[in-house]
Design a protein around this nucleic acid. Structure first.
Length: 204
DNA sequence: AAGCTGAGCAACCGCACCATA
DNA sequence: CTATGGTGCGGTTGCTCAGCT
């Protein structure tokens, strides 16, 4: 139903603009099949050439994105498990918004999906929990300020190792300390201790 | 039932980096 | 050394849909 609406929109887009121009917007089922079929028989290669050779009126960039984020056979979509969420949160705490790097630690997940997941789910929860935490601090001054030293401890990753099994999947390169010069490099930045101090996240 | 709103997601954009001619 | 083209990445946009009033 929704897809049909998309196709109708695409038809309108195509009809209203010059046919020769490179297409943008949602991919049609037909385009998907062409791309899948072409890559199945010829491999990925140079994307600009691929787009031309396959007869797709798309940029190589668009084809690459569609293939990597959606059409690849090993792409897993939806249903991010709690374990994956924990891993995403921990790796984000280590590396910041290095989505492609994070995605490499989650087989079948794409950087785009993780990025979207972070922005729509985790970031919202983090903010919500931070808000709750601030409210608690404002209303209960009896709580000792132990968090400062804990928050600083993120720099030595060893003290903050999560204890879920997926951690064994991470290779040595992946575990190297992140090269953060300062937190201002990312508005989204938060430390792993922030996470461990606020979990479980389902605090709503 | 209709309108509104926010969440979720696919896709695009712009920039940086790299390879090669 | 420089220009050019291809690729990868992070940020952002815009569309769709479900839930709410």
């Amino acid at each position: 139903m929704g897809e049909e609406a998309n196709y109708n929109n695409m038809d309108r887009m195509i009809n209203s603009s010059q046919e020769a121009e490179v297409r943008k917007g949602p991919w049609t089922l037909e385009e998907d099949l062409i791309l899948i079929n072409y890559i199945t028989h010829h491999g990925e290669g140079v994307w600009n050439n691929l787009a031309r050779s396959a007869g797709l009126n798309r940029t190589g960039k668009s084809c690459r994105l569609r293939w990597l984020n959606y059409l690849r056979p090993d792409v897993r979509r939806g249903n991010i498990t709690p374990e994956e969420q924990m891993l995403i949160m921990d790796l984000h705490a280590r590396w910041g918004n290095r989505w492609s790097k994070i995605a490499r630690q989650l087989p079948g997940r794409t950087d785009n999906e993780i990025k979207n997941y972070w922005r729509t789910r985790i970031q919202k929860k983090v903010k919500h929990c931070e808000h709750d935490y601030q409210n608690v601090m404002l209303t209960d001054e009896a709580i000792p300020s132990t968090s400062t030293s804990q928050l600083n401890s993120v720099e030595d990753g060893a003290s903050t190792q999560p204890n879920y099994p997926e951690y064994n999947m991470i290779d040595a390169e992946a575990l190297e300390a992140p090269q953060f010069s300062s937190h201002e490099s990312s508005d989204n930045f938060w430390t792993v201790d922030d996470f461990w101090s606020m979990q479980p996240l389902n605090c709503d």
